Structure formats: C-alpha cells, structure tokens
Measured scan of single mutants.
Amino acid sequence: YIGSKISLISKAEIRYEGILYTIDTENSTVALAKVRSFGTEDRPTDRPIPPRDEVFEYIIFRGSDIKDLTVCE
C-alpha cells in the first residue's frame, strides 16, 4: 500500500487525500505525502472546515485521530 493514493477522514470529520508514505506501527502513526485537505464537506460537525487549496508536503496522523481510511487506487 505504500505509494498508494489514500483518502483519510479524521475524527474532526476533515477529509484528506495523499500518497501513503509510511506506517509506523510502533507509534501508531500514518504519514501521507502531497496531501490535500477537503475540509468537512457535508459531514455533520460542530465546526465546519472549508477545503484548502495548498498541497502539504507531508502530514503525520496519529492512529487515534483517524476515523476512516480508504485506498483510492
């Protein structure tokens, strides 16, 4: 799965898409590269977040912050 395009939804209901870079089982983290944030879209939340235009080089997510993770390709 390393190198695959991943769609990830955080506990804050924010969806991110990026390339799976590393999975650290010891620290329970997932790192994505070339990440875009799509905001909360239409998911119900107390704090709606708009999508962002910039592409983040890397984002490291803690396993406890991840609600859903899907391989896109």
Rank of each mutant, 00 (worst) to 15 (best):
A31F: 03
K34A: 08
Y21T: 14
D24P: 02
N27R: 11
E41Y: 06
T22E: 12
V71G: 09
T22A: 11
A33E: 14
E54S: 09
I19H: 07
K11T: 14
R62Q: 15
I23A: 10
G63L: 12
F38T: 00
R36K: 11
T29D: 15
D42K: 05
D53M: 02
V55L: 11
N27C: 07
Y21F: 07
V35D: 03
I19Q: 04
V55A: 09
I59G: 05
E26K: 13
I49H: 06
T29K: 14
S4R: 15
I59L: 14
E73R: 05
D68H: 13
I60P: 10
Y58V: 12
D46R: 09
E17P: 03
L20K: 01
K5L: 11
K11W: 02
T22F: 11
E73T: 06
G39R: 11
S28H: 12
F38P: 02
A12L: 10
P51V: 09
Y16T: 08
R52G: 13
I49Y: 04
K67F: 03
L8S: 02
I60C: 08
A31Q: 15
P48K: 09
K5Q: 03
T29N: 15
E73P: 14
E54L: 05
E17W: 01
R52W: 08
R43I: 00
E41T: 04
N27G: 14
C72F: 14
P44V: 15
R62T: 09
F38D: 00
E57Y: 03
T25G: 10
I23E: 11
A12H: 10
E73F: 03
K5C: 06
G3R: 02
G39A: 00
R62D: 15
D53F: 04
P44E: 12
I66E: 04
I9T: 07
T40F: 00
I14L: 07
E54Y: 09
D46L: 11
R47P: 07
F61C: 04
R15N: 00
D24H: 05
K34C: 03
A33G: 08
A12P: 01
I6H: 06
T40D: 00
D42N: 07
T40W: 01
D46K: 12
V30A: 04
C72P: 06
G3I: 13
I6G: 05
V30H: 04
D46W: 05
V71F: 12
K34T: 11
L32A: 04
P50D: 05
A12T: 11
I6S: 00
I66W: 02
L8M: 07
D42H: 09
T40I: 02
K67D: 05
Y58H: 11
L8E: 12
T70V: 09
F38A: 01
S28I: 15
S64P: 10
A33L: 07
E57Q: 07
G18I: 01
I6W: 04
E26F: 05
I49R: 14
S37K: 05
I60A: 14
S7M: 15
G63F: 11
C72T: 08
D24Y: 07
Y16I: 00
D53A: 09
Y58K: 14
D42V: 02
S64L: 10
E54I: 06
L69S: 06
I9A: 02
T29L: 09
D46A: 13
V71D: 08
I9D: 05
R52K: 10
L20V: 13
G18H: 03
I49A: 07
I19K: 00
I66P: 00
S10R: 00
I6Q: 02
A31W: 09
E17D: 04
I9H: 04
T29V: 11
N27D: 00
E57K: 12
E73Q: 10
R43W: 01
